[in-house]
């Protein structure tokens, strides 16, 4: 059972690699990596925990699997949010874009009181830079 789980995990990691190579968009590549490889590495670690005998090895593998499950989605969220905010990359967000709506509402809230021009504060300079380096 352990080698079968490890083989399934390796296959999912290969699927993540294929997605990372072939997807056309940065956020799509991030999506492929974080979904498939999280499940893949957790399956491989569980396969090792099933196969090995010593309690030290089993607890180490289970702790590593739990940490991967905790940290990989958080890291992917941080990276994709930073990529979206920086806008150095041509990202095509279709459909509902809640982060843009949230940023627009923040600018409306901070706009009339604190700053006369909407492009004046530091938050606006980040927005203005988005048009400059739209190339990849």
């Amino acid at each position: 059972m352990g080698p079968a789980l490890a083989l399934l995990g390796a296959a999912l990691t290969l699927l993540a690699a294929i997605g990372v190579v072939r997807f056309p968009d940065v956020l799509a590549r991030m999506h492929a990596l974080t979904k498939a490889s999280t499940v893949g590495v957790v399956l491989a670690l569980l396969g090792g925990a099933v196969t090995l005998d010593h309690p030290n090895d089993v607890t180490t593998l289970l702790l590593a699997a739990a940490l991967q499950l905790l940290t990989l989605p958080v890291a992917a969220n941080l990276m994709s949010r930073a990529t979206y905010m920086a806008r150095g990359i041509a990202s095509h967000v279709d459909g509902v874009d809640e982060l843009a709506e949230h940023r627009a509402s923040e600018e409306v809230d901070a706009g009339p009181g604190s700053a006369p021009a909407p492009d004046a504060p530091a938050h606006g300079s980040r927005v203005r830079r988005s048009g400059d380096d739209a190339t990849q």
């Binding site: 490890a6 990691t13 690699a17 940065v26 991030m30 490889s37 893949g40 491989a44 396969g47």
Partner: peptide, 20 residues
Amino acid sequence: VIGIDGLLIVGITAIVLRAM
């Protein structure tokens, strides 16, 4: 960064396979 993350995951999987 995506490539580095994937290579780290590959390394973890290889260590586990070696231990098995």
